[in-house]
Design a protein around this nucleic acid. Sequence first.
DNA 1: GGCGTAAAGGAAACCGGTGTCAGTGACAAG
DNA 2: CTTGTCACTGACACCGGTTTCCTTTACGCC
Lengths: 339, 339
Amino acid sequence: MKKSGQATINDVARLAGVSKKTVSRVINHSPLLNEETRERVEKVIAEIGYVPNPQARALALRRNFLIGLIHDNPNPHTVLNVQQGLLEVLRDTEFELIVHPVDRGSPTMLDDIRRFVERQRPFGVMLLPPISENDSLAALCAEYGARYVRMGSAAFDDAEHMVASNDREAVRGAVTHLIEAGHRRIGLVLGPHGFRSAFERQQGYEAALHDAGIPVQRTLTAQGDYTFESGMRAAERLLDLSPRPTAVFSSNDTMAAGVLHTARQRGLDIPRDLSIVGFDDTSIASQIWPPLTTVRWPIATMARAAALKLIDEEDADDAGESLFVSTLVRRASVAAPAE
Amino acid sequence: MKKSGQATINDVARLAGVSKKTVSRVINHSPLLNEETRERVEKVIAEIGYVPNPQARALALRRNFLIGLIHDNPNPHTVLNVQQGLLEVLRDTEFELIVHPVDRGSPTMLDDIRRFVERQRPFGVMLLPPISENDSLAALCAEYGARYVRMGSAAFDDAEHMVASNDREAVRGAVTHLIEAGHRRIGLVLGPHGFRSAFERQQGYEAALHDAGIPVQRTLTAQGDYTFESGMRAAERLLDLSPRPTAVFSSNDTMAAGVLHTARQRGLDIPRDLSIVGFDDTSIASQIWPPLTTVRWPIATMARAAALKLIDEEDADDAGESLFVSTLVRRASVAAPAE
DNA sequence: GGCGTAAAGGAAACCGGTGTCAGTGACAAG
DNA sequence: CTTGTCACTGACACCGGTTTCCTTTACGCC
């Protein structure tokens, strides 16, 4: 009425002729409330358009409804899919998502994250790879009483704190697919040093070769760092080899696109002269020519599961699924070797 | 000491032997404070690691420090660049970014946004295209006392509320580039109906033709919806034309990739048989073969400017820049027509 | 010495909610 | 009629900050 700003619980109480507390009971669906009273209060609430103030609520409850998404991930595809998955779950709750990208490499990164957690005291925190692999980050979250879930390419924490894909198995399957197509000289474009995903994918590659009794040759492995340019450089090294590999597994799609680029520059026909398999199934995989055979991991599904772990009432125990399977998406970048 | 939770202003006051208010003065850098007292309080703050509770602060100040990012943008590249730009500015402030994607097409979209603004009462709101073009959204923000800035492909609001690229001019330049290369039959892949960006880009295309005295032919325009598939379909239509266009301007890169895809399926050589220009300079533009000539708009710069408009003290007046120029990035997808 | 003034800082109220606990009235049992 | 129980509701303190207003102290000046 007189106040121009937001209606408060006091306004509702006064207009409905009840106490604040009763209004609070209505808002929180307390069961011990006279139906008549409830209706009267609800009517007033609707009339004046009262909406509880989340800050005041947070203060009184000594908890808030914020979920932090901390990441240092250069891949928009991944980040956005995670956001989408999280928000699908949070949409119908009173939780809000606060995004907090950080700068890997920056020496202040950890302080940066600490400041964030210290100040906001988020109820839950979602950690994306690669920084999710940092154990001290998880410890930091726990220290400040925040629930956390880490996303990663392998299970490196309890189910309660983890949503993991099984990159090793997925890559093993992908490389086996190449072997079954007849390839024996298969190059590997490795991900950046120190990344768990890079390691897992390498292990999967080696496991597949091992399964098939093919010796692992160091020369067939080229270092990359998940960027397009590094994929190009890696391809240059691999394609200089003699004999040339007839197929390449690239640890992500972006580098695979780089490999494709270099191969084409050298006049090679894909997949006739070189089969390529990527990882991630980002949009480029299906939009490039030829469309890329690649591994798809269920990002949004994992994010949804993570959101549930973060906000679910009954903690511990039934923490829901934590290991997710990836699938090989077969497109046109793989064929039998020319021979 | 006794409390295991967060240290509060009361703890600091007690340990420093001053009142809450004095601690508050220290935190807020009040000038009328004895240097000695300030130091004593600061020492205690550092010792017990006191951090003010943002919720309590928000309640007392009757304002919060939240910036909402509302969007319904299917393009991860754009969204993530915007986030990055915003956060670059917000990083050194006490503001936090809450992301709130919504579902275009959903009939509850407006309610959804209203609920968000009503509940959180964010200090500022950033609206991304295409929903930024919706005037009632801007009105809604204003209604709830939130500052807002709209991002768009043309200036459709005051400088204070707008960061705009000038798509029309940018496309005019891009198409002129094609004309100067010798093309006269230039196809247009249009963006989705009702999108301001689609309209602006179309206008730019027509302006360029007009400048060169080339009549605009309706048959050379194919409808698209910014997706890869729609680009493919549009290309099918355009490439069926006889005489065939020698060049195509696509209203975004994703559709341009679709055009490229279809053209290649038909055995056309790019750019010899068909020149292509895109828009956005997303990562696919440089990773596809051949690399795409495209228009780059300064997303992150615009987002930074928007963040400043949202949080700057001195409102109105010097609202900072609000119109930003795009640049044509020349790559390998344009050549003279084959003749 | 008395007094005005300014600097420094404290007490209490307030922001908008929630928790605790006590109080009310209706009704059944003793 | 008293008592106990139950369903419902309100008074009041509290969450952790800020604001308002007032008091205390120090100091300069006549």
